[in-house]
Design a protein around this nucleic acid. Structure first.
Lengths: 193, 193
DNA sequence: TAGCGGCGTTTAGTATATTAAGCAAGCACG
DNA sequence: CGTGCTTGCTTAATATACTAAACGCCGCTA
């Protein structure tokens, strides 16, 4: 696999030029204005935006400093969001049914910002794999028993006194692998249901 | 608009060479092996790792494809690290020391929406009369012992399993009138401190 | 010992990124 | 109309990224 052929202008699944131009115009900057702030020439901006030149990382960084924006941010748009590997769609979560029972603090959560739950997981209880909620944050503290918690790719076993907190957009899963009932107090904002 | 020259504000200098070498060695790849997978020359890898050459974005992307790794991931190191998810009991940050001790889930709550506390009230503990917080909601569940809670004009005595929820703007007061330690798990959104 | 095959590094040449300068078009003002 | 300033674009020259090939080193095995 020797690279012999000249570069075919890079198949950009990520269109640097387009993205750069979009950013620049969104800030209402001219090519020259941005070039001045970044310490490069206006011609360079033009060439990059038209993908007639593939900037070096150093140059791109200088340009982004003019916004300012980090390289990570620049490339993080439309980028592979956390790969949801363990996404079993056939298993629907039924909170409150069977092995997992919860007690919710407050009845009508309309307009409220906070949801507080006291959950009980019977031995062997499993919340199921996918609970892809909208923008929300949740966290909890284990009060009794043992909890196996999977968030994204990470799995941990938590005991009484241990805690967790994460963005609800990440697929997560609760399981009680012990022989004792597991109790946790969890909070979610905004309420998920 | 006349472009005022803002200070480039040199962010944490990102050592591409070091990072690349670290990644490559972590995967146990030789420069040649990586170069072959990436479709560049081994010499290029060497030059980049020693920062003797500043790769173009296109080249860096080809190299990262050999891992594989996205540009976003590559540059996301040293950036604001992904928020902690799991907290063991002894990791919870202690906030108050006296009769009422708060153990907070997570340390830096800037930008977070949720604050989760594990509170311990010694017998006789008293939070004081007025705690007029900003716009926030809070709630909690009593895990152990007894709690006397005053919210506005109402006072109630809560036992293990009982819960509360109210708007933080209302003056409130926590007291432990019993002879046993009282434990509660409380949540607040947005964080109050 | 010689010889092989791996490693990372360096060099010389060439392809390309980048600059500096100039281009035409658009808009405002006299 | 012209003058001046803007915009984005293009070109010639220069700096440098990148390649191909060679170099030196180390650990093998015969």
């Amino acid at each position: 696999m020797k690279p012999r052929k000249p570069r075919p202008a890079a198949p950009p699944r990520f269109d640097i030029g387009e993205r750069l131009r979009d950013l620049r115009e969104r800030l209402g900057l001219s090519q020259r204005a941005l070039a001045t702030r970044a310490g490069v020439t206006n011609g360079m901006i033009s060439l990059i935006e038209k993908n007639r030149s593939s900037p070096s990382v150093a140059t791109l960084k200088k340009i982004l400093d003019g916004f300012p924006m980090s390289l990570a941010e620049f490339f993080s748009v439309g980028q592979p969001e956390p790969p949801r590997i363990f996404f079993s769609a056939d298993e629907l979560v039924e909170i409150g049914g069977g092995a997992i029972s919860y007690r919710q603090v407050g009845a009508n959560l309309q307009g409220k910002a906070l949801q507080l739950l006291h959950e009980r997981l019977q031995p062997g209880a499993d919340s199921g794999a996918a609970m892809l909620r909208h923008d929300a944050e949740e966290g909890g503290i284990v009060v009794r028993g043992e909890l196996e918690l999977t968030v994204g790719l990470e799995t941990r076993r938590l005991r009484a006194g241990d805690a967790y907190a994460f963005s609800s957009r990440i697929p997560h899963r609760f399981r009680n692998l012990g022989r004792e009932v597991c109790e946790i107090v969890s909070a979610c904002t905004p309420p998920s249901f």
